[in-house]
């Protein structure tokens, strides 16, 4: 009898502990958000977005950092998305169960857990030095692409695995080839989940700092990479160049890191303001991913 009551009380106590543990992280998150917001909001003016970094904190802005981040994301996405989806398709639909496949799988699992700073060293050794891309946007984009590749591969595979085998059977039974089955049935059916994975991977890339610092991304950049498209007054009126890809760059998280590590008070305010922008960016991406996943789960019920 007594034992019962004790058990029930223990059960209740544990439940409260469980809720507390679950909420703990979220509480910290709220504190973080509030703290950053109160600290940084005063700097969130138009000037902050349209100014270059400066030695005077109240004049400094994130223009070059923001533009650099956008460039990086474009390169990272262009490289990592097709390669990641391709690898995912191969491993899930084509690969036979053999030792090579097994090896590739372990390899990807390991790569997903390799610290990001190691990718920075890889980028420094291969892209910056060996391929002589220097500390360019291209070197940074390639480095981040390799970093997010395992994430995209894993989520592509998971998305494909969620499609029932009967869909594949139906397609093959009609005489479709493997690629036709992938292209016309499996990819459209898993697109939502794949997109979710890609957005999450890209949101991770947006906030990555360590690998970019390691490849030597400069922190003081008072100019923008050359625009790919410029309009001219004379024929042919439009000038297209990718020279900007080889320009040095800075990115939002690097700029934040730079400001955090300076002792003057003004810079930590700038850091907080930069963090608000960065958090806004990553959280927006995450929100889109969650909504996308939710909608697709609703739409397709096998």
């Amino acid at each position: 009898m007594n034992r019962r009551i004790i058990n029930r009380r223990l059960d209740k106590a544990f439940k409260i502990l469980g809720i507390a543990s679950t909420v703990f992280g979220l509480l910290v998150l709220v504190v973080l958000f509030v703290n950053v917001f109160l600290e940084g909001r005063s700097r969130l003016t138009w000037d902050f977005f349209s100014s270059f970094p400066s030695r005077k904190p109240e004049l400094a802005g994130i223009l070059s950092a923001l533009v650099g981040t956008i460039w990086l994301m474009v390169i990272t996405g262009l490289v990592a998305i097709p390669l990641g989806i391709g690898a995912g398709i191969y491993l899930e639909e084509y690969a036979k169960k053999n030792r090579l496949t097994n090896f590739i799988e372990i390899n990807i699992a390991n790569l997903a857990g390799v610290p990001s700073i190691i990718y920075g060293l890889l980028g420094l050794g291969i892209f910056v030095r060996y391929l002589k891309l220097d500390r360019s946007i291209l070197a940074g984009g390639f480095t981040l692409a390799l970093l997010v590749l395992p994430v995209i591969i894993l989520s592509t595979r998971e998305a494909l695995r969620a499609i029932p085998f009967s869909i594949r059977e139906a397609s093959y039974a009609l005489g479709a080839t493997k690629w036709q089955t992938v292209r016309y049935q499996l990819l459209p059916a898993s697109l939502g989940n794949i997109m979710t994975g890609i957005i999450l991977a890209m949101s991770r890339a947006v906030g990555e700092t360590a690998p970019l610092i390691t490849i030597g991304a400069l922190t003081y950049i008072a100019f923008l990479p050359q625009n790919p498209i410029t309009f001219l007054e004379k024929f042919p009126f439009i000038h297209f160049t990718l020279r900007g890809l080889l320009d040095p760059f800075t990115a939002l998280p690097i700029q934040i890191f730079n400001w955090v590590s300076r002792p003057q008070k003004g810079f930590s305010t700038n850091a907080a303001a930069g963090i608000i922008v960065l958090l806004g960016l990553t959280l927006a991406m995450n929100a889109v991913a969650i909504i996308l996943r939710h909608r697709y789960q609703k739409k397709i019920r096998w």
Binding site: P164, S166, I167, E169, A170, S171, A173, L174, Q185, A189, I300, W302
Partner: peptide, 11 residues
């Protein structure tokens, strides 16, 4: 051509 046990239309 083949028809399976459980109907398996494409989505």
């Amino acid at each position: 051509g083949m028809v399976f046990q459980k109907p398996n239309p494409f989505p």
